[in-house]
């Protein structure tokens, strides 16, 4: 499992490969917080290559969304598989996040 960050204009795109779970959620949180420190306010998390997410991973996304909004920015999500979409619906987090079907649509939505 790993995270890859890249830039498209003023948007930071983070790809999560593998799982987002209790063992690595802190690494994702720190990566985004470091980016916010550098001035980034638009963050897109791309789940195209993500396996599963546990409650810790969901919790980190909620925490980051809150933090970024407080700083006047936006966290958006893209490329959820059907299983991940179900997870977000079960927890009603699909109502909290703006979720796009593709990375391109998510980038256009900022």
């Amino acid at each position: 499992m790993s995270f890859t960050a890249s830039k498209q204009g003023d948007i930071t795109i983070i790809e999560i490969e593998g799982q987002l779970i209790v063992g690595n959620r802190q690494a994702l949180k720190q990566m985004v917080l470091d980016d916010l420190e550098k001035g980034t306010r638009k963050v897109l998390v791309d789940f195209a290559r993500t396996g599963y997410i546990d409650s810790s991973g969901l919790g980190v996304l909620v925490s980051l969304a809150k933090k970024i909004r407080e700083m006047g920015g936006e966290l958006r999500l893209a490329n959820l598989s059907d299983d991940l979409q179900t997870l977000f619906e079960l927890t009603k987090l699909d109502t909290l996040f703006q979720i796009s079907e593709t990375r391109e649509r998510a980038l256009e939505s900022f």
Binding site: D54, S55, S56, L58, G59, V60, V62, S63, K66, T91, K92, L93, T95, L96
Partner: peptide, 9 residues
């Protein structure tokens, strides 16, 4: 509870 980090496990 939606905006809390914990409590979904």
């Amino acid at each position: 509870h939606m905006m809390l980090e914990d409590g979904r496990g």
